[in-house]
């Protein structure tokens, strides 16, 4: 039996701020929140704080994008080829 220990590392956003990825990602893929619990291989340097205003802008954009499109016009599906 192998016993391992690790500490739970949690980042909390400061008052008036939110946490998001430090990496340069498009707004559609940006995650925004107040608290993040880091996985064993994650690092606090992968995260940064943004202002509440910036967070609101991102969330609004994501909300606008999340509209269900009507059924697409789909081309006739290809007929499976005959294995023989």
């Amino acid at each position: 039996m192998i016993e391992s220990q690790f500490s739970v590392r949690c980042l909390e956003a400061s008052e008036g701020y939110f946490i998001t990825q430090a990496a340069d990602v498009p707004d559609s893929a940006r995650m925004v929140g107040k608290r993040v619990i880091l996985g064993v291989n994650d690092s606090p340097s992968n995260w940064k704080e943004i202002t509440a205003l910036e967070a609101a802008r991102i969330q609004t954009l994501q909300g606008m994008a999340a509209v269900t499109a009507p059924l697409p016009d789909i081309a006739e599906p290809a007929q499976p080829s005959d294995p023989e």
Partner: peptide, 15 residues
Amino acid sequence: DVARIIAKGYTIFPK
């Protein structure tokens, strides 16, 4: 549960 999830290599970011 949380400890097991992060030990598996997941960061948890509740929304």
